[in-house]
Each structure stands twice: as C-alpha cells, then as structure tokens.
C-alpha cells in the first residue's frame, strides 16, 4: 500500500496521466461532435490507426513532423468523410460501416507498413519524426506543478485547448447549434431548414479530423514509431469517456482524465508485484463501471423528474 501511494503521489505519475490522457481526450472530443449530431462514430479506433501511420510515413518523406501532422489530419478528415458518404449517401448502418472501416484499418495499415517499411510489426526502419515537446516558461519553475504540467508534447496542450474550443464551437457558434439541433431532433431541425444529412456529414468529417490528432500523437509523440494495432482500444474507451462525460466537452475531459489516471496507474503498477494482466484490465473495468454508474444516475434523475412532473400535473384538492 505504501508503495502504491508512493507511485501515485509523484510528479512523474501526474505527468504520465496527462501523457496517456491525450489520445483518449482527442478521440472523446471526436466522438462528441458526431454523437451530438446524432451519429455514433465507432470508427475512431480505425481512424486513429490510419492517421498514426500516415503521420509516420509523411514525416519520413517530407522530413518534417508538422507536414506529417498535416497529412494525418487531411487523411483523418477524408476517412471521416468516407464514413459519412457510406452512412448518409449509401445508407449503410453506421455501426457496420465503422466495423468495416476498423477491420480495414487494422489490416490495411499492416499491408501498407510492409510495403513501405518491409516489416509487419513496427516502423522502426523509417526515420520518422516526432512533434516537439514544449517547456512552458515560468510554469516549469514552480515546484510540483511545473514537472507535471510543463514539458509535454505540443499536441497534449492542443488537446487541452481543444476542450475549450469544442465547448465554444458546440454551444456558441451557428454550426455547433445546428449540430445539436440535428442530434436532438432531426425532424424539427429539418423543418426550420437545416440540412440534416449535410450537418451530419460535416460532423463526421470533423470527428475524423479531431481523431486524427489523437492518431498522430500516438506515433509522433506518445512513442516515435508506428506499430500494428497500436491504438489498443483507445478509440473505444473514448466512446465510453464521452458517454460518461454526458456528451459535454468538459465532462468528456474529466472522464478522459479518469481513464488516463487508470491507464497511467496500470503502467506504474507493473513495477509492483501485481500481475500485469490484472493491471492492464483496470482501465477497461473502470470504463464499464463508470459507464454504468453514469447511465444509472441519469436514468434515476429522469425518473425522478417524471414523478415530479406527474405530481405537478395532479389536480389540486
């Protein structure tokens, strides 16, 4: 127990929580924007995988991490649009289309990796680049907070910034409002002249774009290579984080942080004598528990509200 506390109350642990939260947070925000438009996007896993590879390849070819990131973002947006095309134009069930996309991404990235790097497992033969880490002046001098908050990858800060950008976008801009309107009541939105399919298409493209930052972070920040199936379910965890966060940007951020905490914990606990498999299970179990607690609470709240309305409607005696 003492060892356990020693692990948690260190600045390295705080640093690593933010480090592992980053990809989940991007994916959770990506899940949010499509979910708010009424489309569940379970292709995040595949999109992150594709963009992680794209980032590695183009950063190698262009000798620039930033161009690698740019290409990854373009690729992610295109993939989101592809999903939108299949779902909205060809009327494929969006879950099945996403399953197809995930399978395609898992095998397709290995296929491409082998073609280019000559290896089916890892891209270490390519001289890919990573995005820079940023030391924040002044902040890094502060004890405790400095080592936790400073010196992260540039995308980690962008992820944190994205929470507020997303909050602003979804609640304050016309497009955000259209997305929410379409998600809450497509018929009503349609009746006031909002193009439902067009809005959902834009939301899916945005979802792909945001997820691609998470993918690029995986291979150009979290580690400096691409390896097969490296996203390891983060795209799925993000769906749970978004649901648990009540489909709000701030809520999704807090839920992502919670999963990041458990993910970091599982990395650290491997140092102790806890069976590794057991520890690796923690984030997923925590996700299920969190999801159930959240939905159960929401359902209770809803029922209490119904009872309250019922009482108010009762005639006075």
């Amino acid at each position: 127990m003492k060892d356990f506390l020693q692990i948690i109350f260190t600045t390295q642990f705080g640093y690593s929580v933010l480090r592992v939260t980053t990809p989940i947070l991007f994916a959770a925000l990506a899940a949010l924007v499509s979910d708010r438009a009424g489309v569940i996007n379970i292709a995040l896993e595949g999109i992150m995988l594709i963009t992680a590879l794209t980032g590695v390849l183009f950063s190698t070819w262009f000798h620039s991490a930033w161009l690698g990131l740019l290409m990854a973002v373009i690729m992610g947006t295109l993939t989101g649009m592809l999903l939108g095309y299949f779902h909205l134009k060809l009327k494929t069930n969006v879950i099945l289309a996403a399953v197809a996309l995930n399978l395609l991404a898992s095998g397709g990235t290995i296929f491409v990796l082998y073609l280019i790097a000559g290896d089916k497992g890892i891209s270490s033969s390519l001289a890919s680049l990573t995005l820079p880490k940023i030391t924040i002046p002044l902040l890094d001098k502060i004890p405790v907070l400095g080592p936790i908050l400073s010196g992260h990858n540039v995308l980690t800060y962008f992820a944190l910034l994205s929470v507020f950008l997303m909050h602003y976008f979804i609640y304050k801009t016309p497009m955000g409002m259209r997305i929410r309107a379409v998600g809450e009541n497509p018929e009503a939105a349609d009746s006031v002249g909002i193009g439902v399919k067009k809005t959902q298409f834009i939301a899916l493209a945005m979802s792909g774009m945001i997820a691609s930052f998470g993918g690029a972070y995986m291979s150009m920040g979290y580690v400096s290579w691409f390896s097969r199936d490296m996203t390891a379910g983060r795209g799925f965890i993000a769906l749970a984080a978004e649901a648990m966060g009540g489909a709000t940007p701030i809520g999704s951020f807090l839920a992502s942080l919670l999963f990041g905490f458990f993910d970091a914990l599982s990395n650290s606990l491997q140092l102790l004598r806890v069976p590794a498999e057991f520890v690796q299970m923690i984030p997923y179990v925590a996700t299920v528990v969190g999801l159930v607690l959240y939905t159960a609470a929401k359902r209770n709240q809803y029922q209490r509200m119904l009872i309250k309305i019922g009482r108010q409607l009762e005639p006075e005696k």
Binding site: L96, L104, G108
Partner: peptide, 9 residues
C-alpha cells in the same frame, strides 16, 4: 482486410 472492408460496406 481490403476485400472485407469494401465487401461489408
């Protein structure tokens, strides 16, 4: 993987 993906959608 490519065949499967295209086929399913």
């Amino acid at each position: 993987a490519i065949i499967q993906g295209v086929m399913i959608v």
